[in-house]
């Protein structure tokens, strides 16, 4: 199954929830926000949302800026 995460193509061997993907990326403890196919996905829905092939995710954080 192929996903696009922050513009990069990723292959998934087995189906995952958003929460599992975020954990796999080492982001579970970080303050992030996530868009799934252009819509904000609240953190409370990460666990119950299953990823499907062709999904596009954007994961962002706060960094220095003016």
């Amino acid at each position: 199954m192929e996903l696009t995460v922050n513009g990069e193509t990723r292959q998934l061997a087995q189906p995952l929830s958003v929460a599992q993907l975020v954990a796999k990326l080492g982001m579970a403890e970080r303050r992030i926000a996530l868009e799934l196919n252009g819509e904000i996905l609240p953190r409370s829905e990460f666990g119950q949302t299953l990823l499907t092939g062709g999904d596009t995710l954007e994961i962002v954080q706060a960094i220095g800026g003016g």
Partner: peptide, 13 residues
Amino acid sequence: TVAIRRVNLGQQS
């Protein structure tokens, strides 16, 4: 103020 940017996927957690 802060900016909002993509996380670096290679980032150390």
